[in-house]
């Protein structure tokens, strides 16, 4: 598979030639099995209904900025987790367990799109979807729920799927599993022979934001 499409202004191409997957011969067999499976055929959907699938695909594309193929198959990965009830187990007293929370919040997202723009969320233009999500994120509550809890549910599952994929590791310079090999060169600006230096070290995403920011785990 080729690299994921990512515009250089969004951080694409900072590690030219870096190939996390190329390190797989140095991984232990059990880890190879787990990680390389993510590169194979995505599992068929079992959890999401057709309508939920459409909304979820559009939502994940937005949350992870995946506008073009090849994509990390986030919708299949999240579907598999929910089908297998591979959740963290806990739920808020005033919110459903994760599988039901997913079904219900996807339905709410679709309902929000229909109310505002008379079309399903998945049928909105990229810009319309972005605006809708921006509005939702900015509000304290959304359709009777604390927004932060919904947003956290969505981004947690999205990020866990996306950043478990070796193609995502390629664009952040992370070589993945490190057993039984380990690392030899620790310290600032120290690299292993297989690591690639950042080609644009001054591309600081935080440069034009406040010097100190705070968020919260949900």
């Amino acid at each position: 598979m080729t690299a994921l499409p990512l515009d250089p202004k969004d951080g694409g191409g900072r590690f030219p030639g870096f190939d996390a997957q190329g390190q797989s011969p140095h991984w232990d067999p059990v880890t190879q099995g787990v990680v390389l499976a993510r590169l194979g055929r995505p599992t068929d959907l079992r959890f999401f209904t057709v309508a939920e699938e459409a909304t979820a695909r559009a939502l994940f594309d937005q949350l992870l900025g995946q506008r073009h193929e090849p994509r990390v198959p986030v919708v299949n990965m999240v579907d598999a987790r929910l089908a297998e009830d591979q959740t963290d187990g806990w739920h808020y007293e005033d919110m459903e367990p994760d599988p039901a929370a997913w079904r219900n919040t996807l339905a709410e997202l679709d309902a929000e799109a229909r109310e505002r723009l008379k079309r399903p969320f998945a049928e909105l233009s990229w810009e319309e979807q972005t605006l809708l999500l921006t509005d939702i994120q900015a509000a304290e509550t959304w359709r009777g729920r604390q927004t932060s809890r919904v947003w956290s549910l969505w981004t947690r599952y999205a990020c866990t799927a996306f950043y478990s994929h070796p193609l995502a590791w390629d664009e952040i310079g992370f070589a993945g599993p490190a057993y039984p090999r380990g690392y030899k060169n620790l310290g600032l600006n120290a690299r292993e022979p297989f690591e690639v230096a950042d080609a644009r070290p001054t591309q600081d995403p935080a440069a034009h934001t406040a010097k100190s920011q705070t968020g919260r785990q949900r």
Partner: peptide, 26 residues
């Protein structure tokens, strides 16, 4: 990476901005 993405996402970043922050992981 996944835990770091949670740290970045907690600042409210998503979409292209999240990817850009993540590309800066090193």
């Amino acid at each position: 990476p996944i835990t770091w993405a949670e740290h970045v996402a907690a600042q409210g970043h998503w979409g292209a901005k999240l990817r850009e922050y993540m590309s800066d992981y090193v």
